[in-house]
Amino acid sequence: MQREPYRLVHSVSSKFREMNHKIGLFGGIFQYAWNNRKVVKNEDDETIFVLVVKRYTTKHEPWNYIRPYEILRKCEK
């Protein structure tokens, strides 16, 4: 469109660093809950996810990164 870029590299990378930090905290809480879950027939990934979101929001701000978490969770480090 013959215009300058809308965002600078620094602004995008700073947003990603912030998001990555929050997703890392959430992932740690999720992994702890997953490892310490009780074996129940009906318990699955979804119910643990709801519990973890509640735990995260009590200690931190509301969880707004569901889609990025789902993408990053399946990627290698």
Rank of each mutant, 00 (worst) to 15 (best):
T57G: 05
N64E: 08
W34M: 02
E18C: 09
V9M: 02
Y6M: 09
V53E: 15
G27T: 04
Y32W: 06
G24Y: 04
K74I: 01
K74M: 03
I29V: 07
G24K: 05
I48L: 08
E46P: 10
N64S: 05
K38I: 12
I66D: 06
K41P: 05
N36A: 03
K38N: 10
E4N: 01
C75S: 04
S14H: 13
R17A: 03
N42T: 13
I48C: 14
V40I: 11
P5K: 05
L25R: 09
V50H: 07
K77F: 05
P68V: 01
E76M: 07
G24W: 03
V39W: 04
S13Q: 11
V12T: 06
L51C: 13
V40N: 08
H60S: 08
R67Q: 12
I66Q: 09
R37P: 03
F26S: 00
H10R: 14
K22L: 11
W34D: 01
D44E: 12
K77D: 11
P62C: 15
V50C: 10
I23M: 07
T57Q: 14
Y32M: 06
V52R: 02
G24V: 01
R67A: 06
L8D: 09
V52E: 01
Q2R: 15
G28A: 04
I29T: 06
R73C: 03
E46G: 07
V40Q: 06
K74S: 06
T57R: 09
D45E: 08
V12G: 03
P68Y: 02
N35L: 15
